[in-house]
Each structure stands twice: as structure tokens, then as C-alpha cells.
Amino acid sequence: MTGNDQIQDQIAVTVALLRERLGVRGKTLRQALRRAKHRLPRRVYRRAMILARVENMVDHPKLRLTLNSPQLLSAAGELQTFLRSIDLADRRKGWWLGMLGGLAFNILVFAVLLLAFLAWRKII
């Protein structure tokens, strides 16, 4: 398998990981990265954009020869390592805890405002 075929395979694996780990849809890597931009660290996003820029060039037989395969494979490996390190259960738990924390804060603010109103009206 040549380096260029590996690049195509790595791009396909990366798009699949983006769908699985971040829930991002997109037929191409560029579309998927556009939707996942704010969920990725800046360094990882920049490396991923290197892959996205050459995604169309990999299919072209003559342009394929101009690609820097080791750099592209390194970028794909770094992005895939980051995506595989995402713990989906922890993200779900964090979402629920954030929602419950916001709800608790709102209830606390409501109780304080209610007590302040009752004290103002000299009911308590």
C-alpha cells in the first residue's frame, strides 16, 4: 500500500471517528471539521485542516505525487489519537451535571428573590 492510499484510508477513518465521537455529520473531512471546529483544540484543528486541504488532491493522480505523505500521516495520527481519547460516558455525565448545576442555581436565585419579595412586603 502506498503512502497516498494510506492517506485516503486515514481520512476515511478520521471522518468516521468524528461522526462517532463528536456526532458531527459531513460527507467530506472539510465539512465535518467545519462543524467540529469549536470542539477541537486549536493545535489539533490546524493539523486536521492540513488533511482537509489535500483531501481532493489525493484523488487526482498527478497532484497526488506532490503531497508530503509523512506529514499528512502524522497529522492524521494526531487527530485520531485525540478523537480516540474522548470519553463519551464522561461527556454525557458532564452534560447532565452542567444541566443540574444550572437548574440548582436557578432555583436558588428564585428562592432568594422570593424571600426578598416577602420581606419587602413584610409577610415574613
Rank of each mutant, 00 (worst) to 15 (best):
R21A: 02
D59S: 12
A116Y: 09
V15R: 03
L40V: 08
G101M: 15
I50A: 05
L100F: 10
G102F: 11
E78D: 07
L88Y: 01
R46Q: 12
K122I: 11
F82V: 05
I123K: 14
K93W: 11
E78V: 03
V58H: 05
V24S: 13
R19L: 09
W120N: 13
K62S: 10
L118E: 09
G77Y: 03
L108Q: 09
A12D: 11
R92M: 11
Q6I: 00
L33D: 05
W96A: 07
P41M: 07
A104Y: 07
L17S: 09
L79S: 00
K37A: 10
A119S: 05
A32H: 06
H38Q: 11
L72T: 02
R35H: 02
Y45G: 01
P41I: 09
G77I: 06
V109K: 06
G3T: 01
K122E: 12
A48T: 00
A36M: 12
V13G: 01
R121H: 01
V15W: 00
L65R: 07
T81S: 13
V109P: 00
L115T: 06
M57E: 09
A32T: 05
G98C: 08
S69N: 03
E55T: 06
Q71E: 14
T14A: 02
I7H: 01
V13H: 08
R47H: 04
P61N: 14
Q6L: 04
L118K: 10
R46I: 08
G77E: 05
G23P: 00
L67Y: 03
L51I: 12
L22N: 04
M57L: 13
H60I: 08
K37I: 04
R19I: 07
M57R: 05
R42H: 07
A36V: 06
Q6G: 01
